[in-house]
Design a protein around this nucleic acid. Sequence first.
DNA 1: TATTGTTATACTCTATAACTATA
DNA 2: TATAGTTATAGAGTATAACAATA
Lengths: 164, 164
Amino acid sequence: MLNVSGNEDNAPPMNDASKFSSLVDPVAGRLGYALRRASLVMMADLSSELTELALSPVEATVLLVVNANPGCTQADIGRLLGIKRANMVPLIAALASRDLVTKAPVDGRSHALEVTPAGMEMSSAVHGKMDESERHFLDCLSGVEPAEFIDILLRLMRSRAPRD
Amino acid sequence: MLNVSGNEDNAPPMNDASKFSSLVDPVAGRLGYALRRASLVMMADLSSELTELALSPVEATVLLVVNANPGCTQADIGRLLGIKRANMVPLIAALASRDLVTKAPVDGRSHALEVTPAGMEMSSAVHGKMDESERHFLDCLSGVEPAEFIDILLRLMRSRAPRD
DNA sequence: TATTGTTATACTCTATAACTATA
DNA sequence: TATAGTTATAGAGTATAACAATA
């Protein structure tokens, strides 16, 4: 694996702010700010992990949802992931054009989505890449249980209604 | 204050997934996914809080940085917040056009930024809005100390080098 | 040679509105 | 009347490349 930051093992991982600047940071103690910056870092890491599979994080996630819910519709996925119907169209089209998912009309107005054998293999690969990306960051959760940490984040997410 | 979700006090705050869908969620246990969704929710909340001040979250944060670091440059702010130099230009221009910050050439190539009296008042207002937005979400951190939670997020953010 | 500010531009993501067809 | 899928489009946000002036 590529070691970009030279910070793979137990060496002190630059916990100081010297890498960023010498300014006073008035938002470092803000939950929203810390959440956003941490999220962007993890997204960038996962994104580069997924380049091998030629999938974006969103495409990969949609694929996993179809894989876990055979027969679901685009609208279902949109509600689960917070993606608008209009924006689901190119996502599903991309996965379908690569023969990772299939669309079968069931309703006249809705399509049942399913993963193909190739899509099933790709789902496993995606989980592998997510495991690999996640592993490094889980080490930062010193003391706190990952499951508890994630539960807090999900509770945070559900504490406000989705805007749709 | 406006109560959008009907979930201000101690009523059970919809901790189930019924509000979202009935699908199996294959990424609910993923740290990166939970971080991103939580971050988006907090960003949306802060964004609507800041509409009264006619500031975006990024503009508000830049203003706070200038306020906390009189004499800093655009490049300084960009490094601190992870914003590219090119994208700093319209941000500072917007704040300057509203007489919230001033640009004083010091170097021939760099400008010293400072907040005006109006900018100082606006900074206080921004902190107030951030407090208000943050208050609700801090309640979700049952058990875990906010400072510890934020420290983990910042450690997470610093565990990968900024791409710049 | 490296850095600051700047312009122009492209690309991705997301949001809205409207339309068709189905339930 | 509400929902599913679709199209087109607009608006953020972010990215790169190039340039001039300066250190």
